[in-house]
């Protein structure tokens, strides 16, 4: 079996994988980083969003072998020494999650949104940019508020 090597949340990891292994399977099953979720088979829901070389990507549609040498950040890599990232803090403060299953993907997408669109995000930008992430609990109301607040807080911190 081929070997894949990548840096995940700052740690260099290497493993033998079947060629058909998806990045999300590698993260969840090989590394036991179960914060990245799978909500669909068709790249619609965004629960599996992680950062690959700094860009938001859906890890259910990437082969692990395609990420050879890549730097990956997952939801587990955001909080530093137990202190929540401002975007995580904003989701908590604004009740931007209920069941929490879509939340890791939402937060990773939100950070990618800030990277691309800046810290000053208006409602329609957030809503439009979030169309690749589905939530069934919140009606998106508090998620949008959380992302706006989190983006602003990142500017201050």
């Amino acid at each position: 079996m081929p070997v894949v090597t990548m840096t995940v949340n700052g740690q260099r990891v290497s493993a033998e994988v079947e060629g058909r292994t998806l990045l999300v399977q590698f993260l969840r099953e090989h590394l036991r980083l179960t914060g990245t979720h799978v909500g669909c088979d068709t790249s619609q829901c965004g629960c599996c969003t992680v950062h690959v070389n700094g860009q938001g990507m859906k890890s259910c549609t990437l082969l692990a072998l395609a990420c050879e040498g890549a730097t990956i950040t997952t939801i587990e890599g955001l909080a530093v020494d137990g202190k929540l990232h401002p975007m995580q803090e904003a989701f908590h403060e604004h009740h931007g999650l209920q069941c929490g299953y879509c939340t890791p993907g939402m937060i990773m997408s939100a950070l990618d949104m800030v990277r691309r669109k800046g810290n000053d995000l208006d409602e329609s930008t957030v809503r439009e940019q979030l169309s690749g992430n589905l939530c069934r609990c919140t009606g998106y109301h508090n998620i949008v508020k959380a992302i706006q607040a989190g983006a602003a807080a990142m500017k201050r911190s």
């Binding site: 997952t74 929540l84 929490g100 890791p104």
Partner: peptide, 12 residues
């Protein structure tokens, strides 16, 4: 419950 859920430590 948020602390674990926003950090990927939930257990589904």
């Amino acid at each position: 419950e948020d602390q674990r859920l926003v950090t990927g430590k939930g257990k589904y």
